[in-house]
């Protein structure tokens, strides 16, 4: 449980670093991630070869920002099961053979399985790179800049901060429960109502106290807006480069080029 709490804020710790990518404007990074994901998702389900050049994006950004790849990969594994399930079903249902490698038939379904997994990896990387190079406060201030209602942004910010607080609370309750009950591995179903109910009530009481404390310090919804810096040249260059890169490999197929070279040789 403690590990989970620790993991929650690892990305935030990374986002406090100071590299070329970290210094970019958060809006530029958000837009870049969005463009990248949209383009990656727009390919058809068998276009494995077309997707490969897009691995430059995570490879370059991750290393420029100094983010450990293993950490992001572990996060990717969370998203993998559902994609794997959908992908494996393609292998079962889509059996037309495309080509054979050393007597092993490669079916359309197998290719689409790889496409799904690879695409999932690319998309997850894009989001995680964004989050681990942009401080949380910057993300939410960009949300305000996009005219997302203040109520919503404040709830977003506070939820994120409360998770750690409540996770510690529930963790101590859980330990207390396990200490009181010999040989039990988890909370029994018949206790879940009172356990989670207690937890809820504690949390709500806490929210009330926090609200009173905030009110005492002059908090109001309107007073929360912060000035945002404008985009500078390096941001525009970065965004332009990402768009150009995405568009280039959307039009130009490395695979076809390789095939052409192959046929000439």
């Amino acid at each position: 449980m403690k590990n989970k709490i620790y993991e929650l804020y690892t990305l935030e710790r990374l986002s406090r670093d100071d590299t070329v990518i970290h210094r970019l404007h958060p809006m530029a990074k958000m837009l870049a991630a969005f463009v990248f994901i949209t383009v990656v998702v727009s390919f058809d389900r068998y276009a494995f070869g077309r997707l490969i050049p897009y691995s430059f994006y995570p490879a370059v950004l991750m290393n420029l920002a100094g983010i450990p790849g293993g950490l992001l990969f572990r996060r990717f594994l969370i998203a993998a099961p559902f994609c794997l399930f959908a992908g494996i079903s393609n292998v079962v249902f889509d059996r037309a053979v495309v080509f054979t490698v050393a007597g092993l038939a490669v079916s359309q379904g197998l290719i689409s399985l790889f496409v799904i997994l690879f695409r999932a990896w690319l998309c997850v990387m894009a989001v995680l790179i964004l989050v681990s190079t942009t401080p949380f406060a910057e993300l939410s201030s960009q949300m305000r800049r996009l005219k997302i209602p203040g109520v919503f942004v404040v709830v977003f910010e506070m939820t994120y901060r409360y998770i750690g607080v409540l996770a510690e609370e529930v963790s101590s309750m859980y330990t207390a429960y396990l200490l009181r009950s010999v040989k039990r591995k988890g909370i029994e179903m018949r206790h879940i109502g009172s356990f989670m109910g207690q937890f809820l009530l504690r949390g709500l009481d806490r929210a009330e106290r926090v609200y009173s404390a905030m009110k005492c310090r002059g908090y109001s919804l309107r007073g929360f807006l912060r000035e945002s810096e404008p985009l500078v040249r390096s941001d525009v260059v970065f965004l332009g480069a990402v768009c150009f890169f995405c568009a280039l490999f959307r039009v130009f197929s490395v695979e076809t080029a390789a095939e052409m070279i192959g046929s000439r040789l």
């Binding site: 709830v155 506070m158 206790h191 949390g203 009330e208 926090v210 609200y211 905030m214 919804l221």
Partner: peptide, 23 residues
């Protein structure tokens, strides 16, 4: 305004609650 912290806490509760497994 008073409901904002309550909303935030309940969102976080769902999150923290998901860390608890029950048999």
């Amino acid at each position: 305004e008073k409901k904002i912290p309550v909303m935030a806490v309940s969102g976080a509760l769902v999150f923290a609650g998901q860390m608890i497994n029950f048999t």
